[in-house]
Structure formats: C-alpha cells, structure tokens
Design a protein around this nucleic acid. Structure first.
Lengths: 199, 199
DNA sequence: GGGAATAAATAGATCGAGTCCAACAATTAG
DNA sequence: CTAATTGTTGGACTCGATCTATTTATTCCC
C-alpha cells in the first residue's frame, strides 16, 4: 500500500493536549500549541479530530463501539430491558481509573465550565440512539401494533442515558479510590428500567 | 432612571433570526445579517444574547423560570416525586403549538443537524439541576442518613430530563395537529418516577 | 533507477463567532 | 447647562474551523 506514513496519531495529539490542558486550561490552550507539542502542523490536527472538543471525550466516543458490540451480542434476547442494562454495564466496565475522562476528574484544573461538561451529555446521545434502535427492534418485533412504542423506546433510551450520566458524574467526583463504575451505573439504571417494565 | 433607551430587544432579534434561518438556514445566517435586519449593529447582538445558538432555544430557556416557580410552589410537598411530575407537566403546558421551538419543528428547513439538536439536551441540564436540588431538599430532609441519596437525586433528575426530552422530540415531530405536550410528558415521566418510588 | 500513483503534511488564506475597549450617543437628574 | 447613567457602535483582535494548492514521503511497477 503506497502513501505517505502518518507523522502523528490521535493518541499523540491527545496526550499533548492533556498535558497542555492540565498546564494552562482547556480554553487557553490553542490547537497550534497542541500540534506543536506533537510535532505537526496546526492543519494536521483536523486530519485526526473533527473539533477541539473531541479531545475531551475520547473515552466516551470510544465506548460507543463497546456498546454497539454489547447490544449486538444480545440481539436475540427475550429480555430486552435486561439486555440493555447488561450492555450498559459491560460498557461501563471499560472505564477504569486510568480511563476516567480528564474532563470529569480534572475539570477545575482545566477550567471546564458547566457548559463544556454538559456537552458530554449531548455527545452521549449517540449511545441513546443505539439503545433506542435496539429496543425498537426487540420490543416492537414482538408487538408491532402498539402505537406509542417508538416514543417509549426513545424515552427508555434517554432516561437510561440520563441515569447513566448521573452515575458517571458521581463516579468521577468520588476520587481515585472510587468503586468500579459498574456499581454506580447498576444502582441508577435498574430503577429506570424497573419503572418501564411494570405496565 | 437615566440612560439611553434600547434600540432593539431580544424579541426583535429573535424574529429577525427566525426569518433568516427559515430563508437560508442556521449555519448560513450570520450575526451581521440578523442585526442588520433588526436595525442594529453586529456588536449589539451580544448585549441581548450570549451566543448565536441562544436563538435556537429561547422557549426552552424561558421554561426554566416556569419550572423554578412550579417547584417552589411545591416546596413543602410530602410526595416529592409526584411534585416533580406535576411541576414538569405545568412547565410542559407552557409549550403550545405557537411556542414550539423552531429548531425542533423546522430543523430540516433550517439545516439543523443532530449535533445542534443534541445541544438542547445539554442546555436542559439546567432544568435537571433544579429538579435535583428540589429532591435533595425534599428527600434528604426526611432521611439525611442515606449515603447515596445525592446520587439518587441526580439520577432521578437526569432520567426524568431524558424522558421529557424524548417526549418533546416526539411531540414536535408529530406536526401541528399534535396533542398537547403535557400528555406526551406524562406518559414517559410516570414510569421513570414509578421505578424510583418502589424501593 | 525513474516515473506514476498514492496518501499525508503543510502553507496560506479566509470566514465568522466571540471578545474587548474606547469613543460616541441618548436619556435623566440636579 | 453639566454630570451621571446606560446603551450603541466602530475597530481591532483571537481562534476554531474550512478549504485549496503545493509539497513531501512512501510504495509499486516497468
């Protein structure tokens, strides 16, 4: 395969960025500085990331694939709500102490305000979309005549997303000696799904 | 009171913007064009709005006050979860056909992509913060010793927010002859709160 | 070895949202 | 009338993001 070898990688840029964010804050760190530290030109940044903010949510974005896989493994489950919970827990297990997003653990040092943190929730809508699609396929294949099932699938997906977001936030705030994320997520996702499964 | 009278208003700018968004799309409409149509200078825009995106969420932002008031009226409720649902329904009642955010009803015409729509969820975190604070006050005054009650309050608040967002999205998509938003919100918020109230 | 194909990096330019400050303008109060 | 107050504007600037043309670094094939 011909072509010029890459001079950098997402990982390199991410590491350069994390150092700089911790040194000077997110807002004060320019893309020029990040790429300089990584040894490439400013324009090259956009060959690796769509936007500066992508740097804050690398682990979250990566977990989308984990959730996709976990849901696919449960494609034929006869307990869709239970399967959603399991898939979320499997995905949550991928977040270890070393893979806790800096944006959630070091937000004060990095000068991350509430609006920037909130953008994580918007970004995680992709996860909710996966869950919704899974539910639409599993629930309404069983009973396609129920008129509001698309709304219900979406509501479950978004409610679960919200609960999981609460869990992640608490987990990150609890410090390095925190329990595994899985236990937080389970504690909050279970009541949500319970509510939707009775009736 | 001395001082120079204002030459414009949020309302005027919002109307100018809505026209332009519908004509040319959100991304293609510049702040210069909006302020020109409203008859003021570009810099003046920022005396009325913090950012261009504020224009998309005027009704949502306004509903924050409605929710604040509705929760305050239920400050002494002995059924906090029920009170949260009622407050949400009162707030939802403020969204009529004429007050449906264009960003949700005309997103195709306006070229609003998924990311821009997702930002509404991030913005609505302010609503979830209100609910969380209300729950912390109501639930943990009654039983301050439960260790994970702050997490539970946050999880409820965010789960309810997610469910409500699903309702709003469905409601907007259903077209001008849609049923009142209240019925959508009730249908999805009730199971969430039910799940957290049993146990 | 050399040329062609391929993929990546870079320089340079531009746009527009957003920030900021100084000067100007429109009102009221004394 | 002057001073105080509040709002508008012009001008300059930053920086993320976009885009294009050129250059660069590799492989492949003759």
């Amino acid at each position: 395969m011909a072509g010029r070898p890459r001079a950098s990688s997402q990982r390199m840029l991410e590491e350069a960025a994390s150092e700089l964010f911790l040194e000077s804050g997110y807002a004060k760190t320019t893309i020029e500085q990040i790429t300089q530290r990584a040894g490439v030109s400013r324009n090259t940044f956009f060959n690796y990331f769509t936007a500066k903010s992508d740097l804050l949510w690398v682990e979250l974005d990566a977990s989308l694939q984990a959730l996709t896989d976990a849901l696919a493994e449960r494609a034929t489950s006869d307990d869709p709500l239970g399967a959603v919970q399991e898939a979320l827990l499997v995905t949550a297990a991928g977040f270890t102490a070393e893979r806790a997003p800096l944006v959630l653990t070091q937000y004060e040092v990095m000068g991350i305000d509430a609006e920037l943190k909130a953008a994580g929730l918007a970004r995680a809508l992709a996860h909710a979309d996966l869950i919704e699609r899974y539910l639409v396929a599993r629930l309404w294949a069983a009973n396609p005549l129920a008129a509001d099932r698309p709304l219900q699938a979406r509501a479950i997906a978004l409610a679960v997303l919200g609960a999981a977001a609460a869990a992640v936030g608490r987990w990150a705030a609890d410090g390095p000696s925190r329990a595994p994320l899985v236990s937080y997520v389970e504690r909050v996702v279970h009541p949500v799904l319970r509510g939707f499964s009775t009736g």
